[in-house]
Structure formats: structure tokens, C-alpha cells
């Protein structure tokens, strides 16, 4: 890996020196990935308190489900207001498999991925077949999530409005860890996989096709890209990640109910962390999630005011769209560009 990093470095420097390259088409340097991974690995040893571990778990969790939104909304430009549908379906599928059919909670992770992908695929096929895009796609995803919320509230297998309580049986075999650090490392692995997927999207032909679809669907079609198929594929992928996020959430909090699983709030948070961090970038959701976790914990520690963190976040969303459409990540990139310009 180290030789790889050394080899790719000069090329990287050249690229940033050129005037305004489309940086998203270049692979991110290995150094960056390694640094982030190292910090994340060291974190639980530096901050072993349960408060700080919980903070880390939640930040990583939001980075994970944010990436689910980002892959469809950022990379492929399919803005969704109801992404919680995949999260909720994954949470319920895994919990039902465990509670009603006696599956191992670990099997819940692939089950949740399949369930999320299935719902993503169905919503994708139906909406894209009907030619829905932009605001219309955003609205129909919202309605799908709402239908799922009402159904999960009304049928008995989900426990209805009371929700489902997963009994506490600490032990790694039950996907429940006596130590919070167990959850931390689990979600860290999941986030690493999601980052790897996003990085692959940046480099692969599939990712390039998605970028073409995002920028101009008609032009992408003219280039011979099967727009419908690629969009459905991205929904499968995004749905799978969202589903796994739901399974993790249910195991971490040991509880799930229709409003948690399919409420508007989580859809909005998935969109927010991604948009604010930088939609269509590999680390955007992570930056956004870190900020969300910091802001919500910070405002809770400093004041008792309910809702303040989302006030800040809502305002930030408006500001970002107005002045920084590529998110906070872009701010770092701009600062870095100015820095290196100064040195040259």
C-alpha cells in the first residue's frame, strides 16, 4: 500500500496544480483514506468513556446512512425525501427474522441488505418507469415511506404502533456487545465498506455513467447509457446500505417502532448530512455526520433548548445551497487550493 501511495502522489500533485480539474474524477489519495481510518481506529482507545463512544457510534451511524442517501442522491442525482423507507424496511426485516423466526441477529445484516435493496429496486423500477425525476421523484419517495409507516403501524407482525423490543442478551453471538466499543468497531467496518463503495463509484465506469445521468439525463441517453437500468442499480445499492443501517440501529437501541423506522425525521437527516457535507463526494456524509453529531451534542450540553441543533442545521442547508452547492468538503478543497497556490 505504501508503494502505491508513493507512486500516486506526484500525479496527484500535478492534478491539483492544474487549473480547476474535475477533482471528483480522480481517485482520492490512499494517504487520506489511511489517515481517516487510523484516526477512527485510535478514537475508542483515546476516548474510552461511554459518552464519547456513543458519540462516535452515532456519528459513524449517520455517516453510514448518509452514504446510502449520497449514493442515490449525490452520485446519481436522484434526490429522495423518503430514504428512511430502506432504513425502516431493513430494521423491521432483521428484527422480524430474529424475533419471529429465530434467526441469528448476525444474519439480520444480510437480510436487511436484501430487504432494503428489494424496496429500493421496487421504488426505482416503478418511479423511473413512470419517468419521475427531480422534485417528483423526491415527493413519491416521501409517499412510499409514508405508506410503509402506516402499514407497519397497522399489521401485527411488526408489533403495530407499540413497536418491537429486542430482549437484551449481551454477547457477541447476539450482535450485542457488553462494551460499547464492540458496536463502535462494527459500525466502523460498515462505514469503511460504504466508503470503499463510494470510492469505487468515483473510479468505475458505473460511477461515471451515474455522473452523466446526474448532469444531463438526455445527454446520457444519447451517449448510449441505459439510464433506466443504471438508475435502478443505484437504488438497489443505496437501498441495501440503508437496510443494513436499519439493522444496526435496531440492535444498538434494541427497539424499533413505525415512527422511528419510517418517520420523516430520519429521511431528512440522511439528506442533510450528505448535502451539508458534500453530495456526490466520498467523505461528504462523514463530514456532515460529524458536524450533525457535534452540533446536536454541543447544543444539548450547552443549553436545554429543544430543536436548536436542527434550527442550525436547517439554516446551514439553506446557506450551503446558496453559497456552497458542493458542501463543506468543497470549502476544504477551496482552502487547500488557495494554500497550494500561495506556495507556488
Amino acid at each position: 500500500m505504501s508503494t502505491d501511495a508513493a507512486k500516486s502522489q506526484p500525479a496527484q500533485r500535478e492534478a491539483t496544480a492544474r487549473p480547476a480539474p474535475r477533482s471528483e474524477l480522480l481517485p482520492l489519495p490512499w494517504k487520506l483514506h489511511l489517515t481517516v481510518l487510523l484516526i477512527a481506529l485510535v478514537y475508542p482507545f483515546v476516548f474510552p468513556s461511554s459518552f464519547m463512544l456513543n458519540f462516535g457510534v452515532l456519528a459513524l451511524f449517520y455517516a453510514f446512512i448518509g452514504q446510502s442517501w449520497n449514493i442515490a442522491g449525490g452520485f446519481a442525482g436522484q434526490l429522495s425525501f423518503g430514504h428512511v423507507a430502506f432504513f425502516g424496511v431493513g430494521a423491521y426485516a432483521a428484527t422480524i427474522a430474529q424475533m419471529r423466526f429465530g434467526f441469528s441477529p448476525w444474519l439480520g445484516l444480510p437480510i436487511a441488505a436484501l430487504a432494503g435493496a428489494l424496496v429500493g429496486g421496487i421504488i426505482g423500477v416503478l418511479s423511473f418507469r413512470a419517468g419521475l425525476k427531480g422534485s417528483y421523484f423526491a415527493l413519491i419517495t416521501l409517499a412510499f415511506a409514508e405508506v410503509l409507516r402506516i402499514v407497519s403501524n397497522s399489521v401485527s407482525i411488526t408489533g403495530g404502533g407499540l413497536g418491537m423490543l429486542i430482549p437484551m442478551k449481551p454477547g457477541a453471538a447476539n450482535l450485542q456487545f457488553a462494551e460499547r466499543s464492540g458496536f463502535y468497531f462494527l459500525i466502523l467496518v460498515l462505514v469503511a465498506i460504504s466508503i470503499a463503495l463510494a470510492e469505487w463509484l468515483r473510479r468505475s465506469k458505473f460511477g461515471a455513467q451515474l455522473a452523466a445521468i446526474r448532469e444531463n439525463e438526455d445527454a446520457a441517453k444519447a451517449l448510449g447509457i441505459n439510464v433506466f437500468r443504471e438508475k435502478v442499480k443505484v437504488m438497489l445499492l443505496s437501498g441495501a446500505i440503508g437496510g443494513v443501517g436499519g439493522c444496526f440501529f435496531a440492535q444498538y437501541f434494541l427497539y424499533i417502532d413505525p415512527l422511528i423506522a419510517f418517520g420523516v425525521d430520519k429521511s431528512v437527516e440522511m439528506l442533510l448530512v450528505s448535502m451539508i457535507g458534500g453530495a456526490g463526494t466520498v467523505y461528504g456524509p462523514m463530514v456532515g455526520a460529524l458536524l450533525l453529531a457535534l452540533v446536536s451534542d454541543g447544543t444539548r450540553a450547552l443549553t436545554q433548548i429543544q430543536g436548536l441543533s436542527l434550527v442550525l442545521y436547517g439554516a446551514l442547508l439553506v446557506i450551503i445551497i446558496a453559497y456552497l452547492p458542493n458542501g463543506l468538503i468543497d470549502l476544504f478543497a477551496r482552502i487547500k487550493a488557495r494554500f497550494s497556490k500561495g506556495r507556488n
Binding site: 436547517g314 442547508l317 445551497i321
Partner: peptide, 12 residues
């Protein structure tokens, strides 16, 4: 998204 941001802002 701007109107969504506004609604989050106002609601909270």
C-alpha cells in the same frame, strides 16, 4: 431543498 431547509428551520 431550500424550501425543505426553511421548513426544518421554521419547525424547529
Amino acid at each position: 431543498l431550500v424550501t425543505l431547509g426553511l421548513s426544518i428551520l421554521i419547525e424547529n
